[in-house]
């Protein structure tokens, strides 16, 4: 029992300090680990509450991307005439949309961490990072369901229809996914930290995420001749090379550009570090300004 341990250790050591400010980058992984059960419960709550009292329940996880995919096929493939090469447009847009919605959901929801949870944060302490992290995980579960659905189609087209040719780069897609969601998380916690004081950003964010989608190869591919001349600008978006690499791995179409991928990784890590620093700084006193 912890109690006895305390009684016995009658030395002058203190377990923790409450001070005005943190060290610059004080992640306190140990503490996060102590609260892993809370993280798990938050994820569970997200999953079971979203579709409670709906008839279709978790099927909505799949209906959403399918409907969007249909719209994209009609809009971008049929009407705008973007070229998807030998890849069936349906499959092409499905992976794009699955990836994009994971990224956009993560960014949207983590960017409201402080404002959405002011109530809880004002009443009880737990490592605040648990909340945005839990959103990453609950988003991942949703992603997995959608991705499994995509895989079913993809397997059909690679193994039976044989119109799609993939390659071993598939093995690094989990890493690409990690980079992508970390980018969303990094942006999210940075934005939520800034919006505690300057609310203007909240209006920008929903709008900004929408715009960002057009700057990311979601509806098109960089190899498309119509897109090629904007390639260098588009690659500045750290998501671009990730999306391209994904499509390259699954369809053999698109670009696998190691230089720009490294750029994305570095960009992401820097953003995450800055995000955490600002977040940790804000979490200590944001409750005074909400």
């Amino acid at each position: 029992m912890t109690n006895e341990k305390i009684l016995n250790s009658n030395d002058d050591k203190w377990d923790s300090n409450i001070t005005p400010s943190n060290k610059l980058l004080d992640l306190n992984i140990k503490e996060l680990w102590q609260y892993r059960d809370l993280l798990f419960l938050f994820v569970k709550k997200d999953i079971i509450t979203v579709y409670k009292q709906t008839i279709l329940g978790p099927i909505w996880f799949i209906i959403q991307p399918i409907l969007t995919t249909f719209v994209f096929v009609i809009l971008f493939s049929k009407m705008a005439g973007f070229d998807t090469g030998n890849v069936p447009p349906f499959l092409f847009y499905m992976i794009s949309i699955t990836l994009w919605s994971y990224f956009a959901d993560t960014l949207n929801i983590t960017s409201k961490t402080f404002t959405d949870n002011a109530n809880i944060f004002g009443k009880v302490y737990f490592p605040r990072l648990i909340l945005p992290l839990s959103k990453v995980f609950s988003g991942f579960i949703k992603f997995l369901i959608q991705f499994a659905f995509f895989m079913a189609f993809w397997l059909y087209y690679t193994l039976i229809d044989k119109s799609v040719v993939s390659n071993w780069y598939i093995l690094i897609t989990p890493f690409l996914l990690l980079i992508m969601v970390t980018l969303g998380l990094g942006f999210g916690i940075l934005i939520t930290s800034l919006t505690t004081k300057y609310r203007d950003l909240t209006f920008l964010i929903t709008f900004g995420v929408q715009l960002l989608m057009y700057g990311t190869p979601v509806a098109y591919s960089l190899t498309d001749t119509k897109v090629e001349k904007y390639k260098n600008i588009l690659l500045l978006n750290p998501l671009t090379s990730i999306f391209e690499a994904f499509k390259f791995a699954f369809f053999g179409r698109g670009e696998f550009n190691l230089f720009w991928l490294s750029y994305s990784v570095i960009f992401t890590l820097l953003l995450l570090i800055i995000g955490i620093i600002v977040f940790k700084n804000v979490e200590k006193r944001f409750i005074d300004v909400v």
Partner: peptide, 25 residues
């Protein structure tokens, strides 16, 4: 709120031995 780490002090330090749980609500 400071004791339960919901907000932080402007100055000073609180040293704690053991786990704190707070019931503000």
């Amino acid at each position: 709120k400071i004791l339960s780490k919901v907000t932080s002090p402007t100055e000073g330090i609180i040293k704690v031995r053991g786990r704190i749980a707070s019931l503000l609500e």
